[in-house]
Design a protein around this nucleic acid. Structure first.
Length: 292
DNA sequence: ACTCACAGTACAAACATCGA
DNA sequence: TCGATGTTTGTACTGTGAGT
C-alpha cells in the first residue's frame, strides 16, 4: 500500500447503502455508480472499466471485486449492458472492460438519482440543493488504501483491509457530519455506539474498534461519557497505521487517558515521510477544496 | 451497559482448470 | 501455452453471547 492522493481517489457513499450492501459491495457500487451517473446528469450512463482498474481504485483483491460485482448484479444494484456485438463470454475478465449500469433495485435507483442530481449541480454550480434530505453522501478517501503491486505483502498485513476499509467509511461519515456542524456553528458531533452500529450495520464491538483506530492514527479525538462518544475533532487521515498489535474495543473516558497495551508502533507501507512538504500541502488543499 | 473470548466469516493469495 | 475463471487454503477480523 502506498499513498497516491489523486483528486479522484474519493468515493461517495450514503449511510443507507449499508442496509443493502456489504463493505466491499458498497465500495464497488459507489465507484461504478459515480461514473454511471455522470452522463448528462442522468443515471442511465454506462461504466466501463476492467476488474484490475476497479481493484486499484477500491483497494480490494481481484477475487473480492469479482465476487462483489457478481453479488451487486444478483441484487440488481448493477446490470450488465447488452452488447450489440457478440456478447462477451465472461463477465469478469480482468483485462477487458466491464460495461455496467445501474440496476433496478429501489435503493440503487434512489441513490443514482440523487447522485446524478448532485453531479449535475456541481457542474452547473447551482446553489440550491435538491438532493433529497434523506440521502446524505459522504466522501470516503480510498486514496489511502491503494496497493503497491510491486511490494510483497507481509502476512500480518494480509487481512487488514477489512478493518481499514471500515475505518475509512466511518471517518468519511464523521468528517462530513463535523463539517456540516461547523458550517452551522453547532457543537461537536456526538453519536452513541448503538447509533453508529445501526447506521453502518456493524456490531457495536466493531464500531468501538474502528473508533479506537481512528484515534490511534490521529484522525479523531473523542471523549466518552453517558453512553455517547463526542468527537472533539475529525481531521484528514494522513497515514494508515496500526499503533498497537491488537484492536481494542474499550473506549477511553477522555483524550488524556493513556492507551493501554502500548506496543511498538507499526506503520504500514503508507507513509507521509516520503511526501515532500509541497505535496503534503497540495493534498490538504485538495481535501479542503473538495469539501466546499 | 460494557468487556472479553472464541467460533465463524471474509478476505488475499495460491493453486487448479478451462477455452482458444 | 496463455490468460481468464474457478476453487482451496491460511489467517486476522467480526459478531455473538456469557460474565460482570
Amino acid at each position: 500500500m502506498n499513498i497516491r492522493d489523486k483528486k479522484d481517489d474519493v468515493l461517495f457513499m450514503s449511510t443507507g447503502l449499508f442496509e443493502h450492501l456489504s463493505d466491499a459491495e458498497s465500495y464497488v457500487f459507489s465507484h461504478v455508480a459515480f461514473f454511471a451517473c455522470q452522463k448528462e446528469g442522468r443515471f442511465k450512463g454506462n461504466f466501463k472499466q476492467t476488474t484490475r482498474a476497479i481493484c486499484n481504485k477500491v483497494g480490494y483483491s481481484a477475487n473480492t471485486v469479482r465476487k462483489a460485482l457478481e453479488d451487486l448484479i444478483d441484487k440488481k444494484f448493477l446490470s450488465v449492458v447488452k452488447e450489440e456485438e457478440p456478447t462477451l463470454k465472461y463477465n469478469y475478465i480482468d483485462k477487458v472492460a466491464h460495461k455496467l449500469t445501474i440496476g433496478e433495485a429501489d435503493y440503487a435507483v434512489k441513490y443514482a438519482n440523487s447522485m446524478a442530481t448532485m453531479l449535475k449541480e456541481s457542474v452547473t454550480k447551482q446553489k440550491k440543493v435538491t438532493v433529497p434530505r434523506d440521502m446524505t453522501f459522504f466522501k470516503v478517501n480510498v486514496g489511502k488504501l491503494h496497493r503497491d503491486t510491486n511490494t510483497v505483502v507481509d502476512k500480518k498485513e494480509k487481512n487488514l483491509s477489512k478493518h481499514f476499509h471500515k475505518t475509512l467509511i466511518l471517518h468519511g461519515y464523521l468528517y462530513n457530519q463535523t463539517s456540516w456542524n461547523k458550517k452551522r456553528n453547532r457543537d461537536n458531533v456526538s453519536r452513541g455506539v448503538a447509533f453508529l452500529s445501526a447506521a453502518m450495520q456493524w456490531s457495536q464491538n466493531t464500531v468501538r474498534r474502528v473508533i479506537n483506530t481512528l484515534k490511534d492514527i490521529g484522525a479523531v479525538g473523542y471523549s466518552y461519557a453517558t453512553k455517547t462518544v463526542t468527537f472533539t475533532f475529525v481531521s484528514v487521515i494522513n497515514a494508515i497505521k496500526n499503533t498497537s498489535n491488537k484492536l481494542r474495543t474499550k473506549l477511553c473516558n477522555s483524550d488524556k487517558e493513556p492507551i493501554t497495551a502500548a506496543a511498538p508502533n507499526k506503520v504500514f507501507k503508507i507513509d507521509v515521510e516520503n511526501l515532500t512538504p509541497s505535496q503534503g500541502a497540495q493534498n490538504l488543499k485538495e481535501w479542503q477544496e473538495r469539501d466546499n
